[in-house]
Design a protein around this nucleic acid. Structure first.
Length: 412
RNA sequence: GUGGCUAUAGUGUAAUGGCAGCACGAAAGAUUGUGGUUCUUUUAGAGCGGGUUCAAAUCCCGUUAGCCACCCCA
């Protein structure tokens, strides 16, 4: 038997309702905040991601699906969407006629990781990108949007972590500073932290190894941002407070993608265990320039759909699916007439089903029940002779004989 | 990618090397053409491939997949 590949799975009809609810909420609130949907290809030139995400990051080095197509091109399945959206923004000159471009996307991403709960190889992200402004209020708006979206879905106990990485110069300075601080402790740190100090020094402070935690315990996180970035960060914090969004400043927070600058944030949910981040994002003020465009500041975030649904599965209210009419017949001989009536219901926009296996009326009624039909229309020989049917309201159990015109009027 | 745990009807589970069972689900029925409750009947199972043994769901090896902790990340 063939099976779905490791880390991929089918979203079955019983589960799809949740996805549709989340997507509908997202489309609704994103539109209120001025975002328009964009759909970009799932495959891109591999160099797009190598250049934007960074060739030293794990996503690019260890997790990206890359293959050579028949034309010898180097192609990647997208591991995230920001790079694609920026590519589309530049390629289609979307900066024309507007100073701020707001885009959202929903779609599958691919990373070849070891699967766990809330972590698949093909997973869906839902995200936004706002391109064209460095105003700290845009940062605030973006984070507020993410928070409001979660609240609207019924999730309350999420946590917003916030940090600022500063501009390009600050980022370099911060890395250098912490490397210098770490240097005297290197001997007492674990092997992995030796690597971390070179690759992503802030992670040393997050190491779960007791010795490492002990060694770095006393180190303070100074404010290393330049005046401009510090002011920007203060404005973001002030704006968030004004908007009533609770947040925690987390100086150790780093992101796995190289393009982030200034504001970065992460939203986590307690319902998820180790993989608790349901949303992450931040500014990427240099990415558009680095990809060959004009220097253009931008900010965005992405939600992990699977994680969002895991976190919200008990909180998002779902109405049971139902159909309008079940068409039942008392005699197999009336099958064609019933089918005609079913078509009439459908032509009038009413969902309708009927039994196709010649089962007993009792069995058909059970089926109507199971499909959660609002009405059952029963056609029997006697009624047929009088050009009537029986209309039964499945909630009240009341039924009456009626002509089809009357039935339609009653149900619509 | 590293380490560990797990794998039995559609789902959830039981049986300590000796007849694979239970619950839910699904299907049919309980005298004429009517759902939900109840009752009866039916249905369907060892991830895959090897090995040990008179005998394997059970022990061993491999493999695949899921989960957990890392790595990392949404």
């Amino acid at each position: 038997m063939l099976k779905a590949l490791r880390g991929t799975k089918d979203i079955l009809p019983d589960d799809i309702g949740m996805w549709q609810v989340v997507e509908a909420f997202a489309r609704d609130i994103f539109s209120i905040y001025g975002y328009k949907e964009i759909r970009t290809p799932i495959i891109e030139d591999a160099s797009l991601f190598i250049r934007s995400i960074g060739d030293a990051t794990d996503i690019v080095r260890k997790e990206m699906y890359i293959f050579t197509d028949r034309g010898g091109r180097n192609i990647a399945l997208r591991p995230e969407a920001t790079a694609s959206v920026v590519r589309a923004y530049l390629e289609n000159s979307m900066a024309q006629n507007q100073d701020l471009t707001k885009l959202f996307y929903i779609g599958p991403m691919f990373r070849s990781e070891r699967p766990q709960k809330g972590r698949q190889r093909q997973f869906y992200q839902l995200g936004v990108e706002a391109i064209g402004s460095d105003n700290p209020l845009l940062d605030v708006e973006t984070i507020v949007l993410a928070a409001r979206f979660l609240q609207k879905l019924g999730l309350r106990d999420f946590k917003v972590n916030l940090n600022s990485l500063g501009c390009e110069k600050d980022k370099q300075a911060i890395i250098k500073k912490y490397r210098d601080i770490i240097k005297p402790y290197l001997g007492s740190l674990c092997a992995e932290c030796g690597e971390r100090s070179k690759k992503n020094v802030l992670r040393v402070f997050d190491c779960k190894n007791e010795k490492c935690a002990e060694a770095v315990k006393g180190i303070k996180f100074d404010n290393l941002l330049c005046a401009d970035c510090a002011e920007h960060f203060e404005s973001v914090k002030k704006g968030l407070k004004n908007s009533g969004v609770d947040f925690i400043v987390e100086p150790k927070m780093v992101r796995g993608l190289d393009y982030y600058t200034k504001t970065v944030f992460e939203i986590s949910s307690p319902d998820l265990g180790a993989k608790d981040a349901i949303c992450a994002g931040g500014r990427y003020n240099n990415l558009i320039r680095d990809m060959g465009g004009k220097a253009t500041p931008a900010i965005g975030f992405a939600f992990g759909m699977e994680r969002l649904i895991l976190a919200g599965k008990d909180k998002i209210s779902m109405s049971a699916p139902s159909i309008a009419v079940f068409m039942a017949i008392a005699d197999k001989a009336l099958e064609y007439d019933a089918f005609k009536m079913m078509s009439l219901f459908r032509d009038n926009g009413l969902s309708c089903e009927m039994d196709r296996e010649g089962r007993s009326l009792k069995s058909q009624m059970r089926k109507a029940q199971k499909l959660n039909a609002r009405f059952t229309v029963i056609l029997g020989e006697e009624e047929f002779r009088r050009d009537k049917v029986i209309l039964k309201d499945m909630n009240s159990g009341e039924q009456k004989e009626a002509g089809m015109d009357e039935v339609l009027k009653e149900i619509i």
